[in-house]
Amino acid sequence: MRTQGKVCHLALLLLPFTPLGTNARGLDSVMHKLLHAEGYSATATYAVTLPQADDDIVYTIRLQQPSPSSYLIDWDVTTPSGPQQGFTSYFDGHFYNFRNKRLQEHHEDWDSIPLKGPRAIQHTVQFASLLPHEIGRTLESMAADTLHYSIRSTGHDDVTEVKVTRMAAGNMTDAEMTYVFDNATGMPREFSAEYNPGAISEQLVHAVYNTQLEPMLPTPLCEENLRARYPDAFENCRQSNFAIENMPGKPLPSFSLPLTFSDSGDRLSYTAGTQAESPTVIVLLDAESALTPRLVEHIRSAAERTAVAPSVIYAFVGRDIDFCRTALGGALMDGEKAVHGARSLATDCGAASLPAVMTCDSSGIVKFVTVGLNKHIDTDVIRMITLTSN
């Protein structure tokens, strides 16, 4: 699988070039079609290549986008622990996300904050970036940010190829992406990306859009039809507007994330329900937030003042390693670990806002949670660690 994915990716480079003026017009046409796509249904194969992994992780994904503001994403994957399935849907201010045997919901009339803005949960949830409208939004945003993105499009007889380079701090390339679009429909045919290219921690993704399929649900999308398609999720796994404040008493979700201070691509992995170090402090945070350095100081101060030394895991939702390392003062203290790219973990925990701090016991059960940064954070974390270790 690994070799096949790389061959497909390299094959994109062999297409003939056409003049730049035609390319610009072709890209504008494709973006217009992406942003206004309606009645779209397709399947996709999404392969992820991780460093030091023997095989790719391959997802089979089904996409339905009735309108630019509604969609259903259905996926399945085979893992060493068995098959996994999930779905995500958004329509009319209602968001549903099912994974790890938990159905999370957000409804605009209950709490609109997670559903507002360009980084709203319906735009950033896993696999939403494969939808035509989301691709159009992403390309628009990249084209407007010339400081961090370089875009080059190439027109061919039947496809338009778009290459994007993303620059990190220090003018270093931290991602290279390639999109291939059908000229007639404007819809995506293929997507590939290299994150941290050339580094030991390099990660590859490769998506191939396959044949069109019949819509999974009648339109317009509604909860009644979702319940009919996914009865077990709604009957047995539903947690309305699940929030991180509701995590105490529940197992810490599974995760496998790259270690921020590893130069060899090592990852920190945990399987829900297995034994954990006790007490463990999980800090969900954004490296680019102005609050983060202060929060780290408070966490370290609290850890030093407890009778039982905790294990601390800083889980950054972003992927910029330089930002993450800088937020921690360039080094880890004893008992600390740091991972990045942890947005999926934050989502699984119901963290609609950051920062958030959790403590877990030896069974991997979350005991206490605090959200935000306040003047009592040292005292709060000391109390959480002390009660968790008892």
Rank of each mutant, 00 (worst) to 15 (best):
I113S: 06
I113M: 02
K116H: 07
G117W: 08
G117P: 09
P118I: 12
P118K: 14
R119V: 07
A120H: 03
I121M: 05
H123D: 06
H123C: 03
V125R: 05
V125P: 02
Q126N: 09
Q126H: 08
Q126A: 11
F127P: 03
A128H: 00
S129Y: 10
L130S: 01
L131W: 00
L131K: 00
P132S: 02
P132N: 05
H133N: 12
E134K: 00
E134P: 00
G136M: 01
R137M: 11
T138V: 05
L139D: 11
L139E: 11
S141Q: 14
S141A: 15
S141F: 05
S141Y: 03
M142Q: 14
A143M: 14
A144R: 14
D145V: 03
T146H: 11
T146Y: 02
T146F: 02
T146R: 14
L147G: 05
L147M: 10
H148R: 15
H148C: 12
Y149D: 07
Y149T: 05
S150Y: 09
S150I: 09
I151F: 10
S153W: 00
S153R: 00
T154F: 10
H156K: 02
H156R: 14
D157L: 14
D158Q: 11
V159Q: 07
V159S: 06
E161L: 15
E161M: 13
K163C: 03
K163S: 10
K163G: 01
V164P: 01
V164Q: 00
T165P: 08
R166V: 11
R166F: 10
R166W: 10
M167E: 07
M167T: 13
A168T: 12
A169Q: 15
A169G: 08
G170E: 14
G170W: 13
M172K: 15
T173E: 10
D174Y: 14
D174P: 10
D174H: 15
A175N: 15
A175K: 15
E176C: 08
E176P: 04
E176Q: 15
E176I: 13
M177N: 09
M177W: 10
M177R: 12
T178E: 04
T178S: 05
T178I: 08
T178K: 03
Y179R: 02
V180Q: 10
V180P: 04
N183L: 01
N183G: 02
N183F: 02
N183A: 06
A184M: 06
G186I: 08
G186N: 08
G186W: 06
G186H: 09
R189I: 01
F191R: 00
F191K: 00
S192V: 07
S192I: 05
A193H: 02
A193I: 10
A193V: 10
E194Y: 11
E194S: 14
G198K: 05
G198N: 01
G198S: 01
G198A: 04
G198E: 01
A199M: 14
I200C: 10
I200P: 07
I200Q: 13
S201R: 12
S201E: 06
E202K: 12
E202H: 10
Q203K: 06
L204C: 05
H206T: 04
A207G: 05
A207V: 13
N210C: 04
N210R: 07
T211V: 06
Q212D: 08
Q212A: 11
L213P: 00
L213E: 08
E214M: 15
E214S: 15
P215N: 12
P215F: 12
M216W: 01
M216N: 04
L217N: 03
P220W: 00
P220H: 00
